[in-house]
Amino acid sequence: MRYIDAVQAIVTAAWYDREPTTAQLAAIEREMPAITADIEWLDAVITTLDRTPTELDTRRIRRARRRALDARRDLANHSAPDAEVGA
């Protein structure tokens, strides 16, 4: 019987498979308001999937959608100067 030994490079995590860098964590932190707003919007929509939406549900979805769009707009406006610097 022949044993197959693990190759060190395969056992060890590759450069792309390690913990996030400080820059990546900062980017996630910058996007967190938009992520949270998207989750709230999705939650509002999911609650109405199995029933007919009431007026209150419709308002909740509309407000959540508006918050998500505002958060995305703020993120895009904040990120625009960073993109120009790298160009």
Results as ranks from 00 to 15, higher is better:
residue 73 R to T: 12
residue 45 V to T: 04
residue 20 P to G: 04
residue 41 W to A: 13
residue 17 D to G: 14
residue 81 P to F: 08
residue 62 R to Q: 11
residue 49 L to A: 06
residue 50 D to A: 15
residue 48 T to H: 00
residue 79 S to D: 15
residue 40 E to Y: 02
residue 23 A to G: 03
residue 85 V to E: 10
residue 55 E to Y: 09
residue 10 I to Y: 09
residue 13 A to T: 05
residue 51 R to E: 08
residue 31 E to K: 08
residue 18 R to E: 14
residue 26 A to I: 05
residue 66 R to M: 14
residue 71 A to S: 10
residue 15 W to M: 14
residue 63 R to M: 15
residue 32 M to G: 02
residue 21 T to A: 03
residue 46 I to A: 11
residue 64 A to Y: 02
residue 67 R to E: 04
residue 10 I to D: 14
residue 47 T to L: 15
residue 63 R to N: 08
residue 71 A to M: 05
residue 84 E to K: 08
residue 7 V to N: 08
residue 10 I to W: 11
residue 55 E to W: 04
residue 25 L to G: 03
residue 35 I to H: 05
residue 56 L to R: 12
residue 34 A to G: 07
residue 72 R to G: 10
residue 42 L to D: 05
residue 40 E to D: 00
residue 34 A to S: 09
residue 68 A to D: 06
residue 50 D to W: 08
residue 12 T to P: 04
residue 77 N to R: 10
residue 52 T to E: 10
residue 46 I to E: 08
residue 32 M to Q: 09
residue 2 R to Q: 14
residue 58 T to M: 09
residue 79 S to Q: 15
residue 53 P to S: 01
residue 66 R to H: 13
residue 36 T to D: 11
residue 32 M to N: 09
residue 59 R to Q: 08
residue 30 R to K: 14
residue 11 V to T: 15
residue 87 A to L: 15
residue 20 P to K: 02
residue 51 R to Q: 09
residue 51 R to T: 07
residue 22 T to Q: 07
residue 86 G to C: 10
residue 51 R to S: 06
residue 45 V to F: 06
residue 76 A to Q: 04
residue 79 S to F: 12
residue 76 A to F: 10
residue 41 W to F: 13
residue 57 D to L: 02
residue 43 D to V: 12
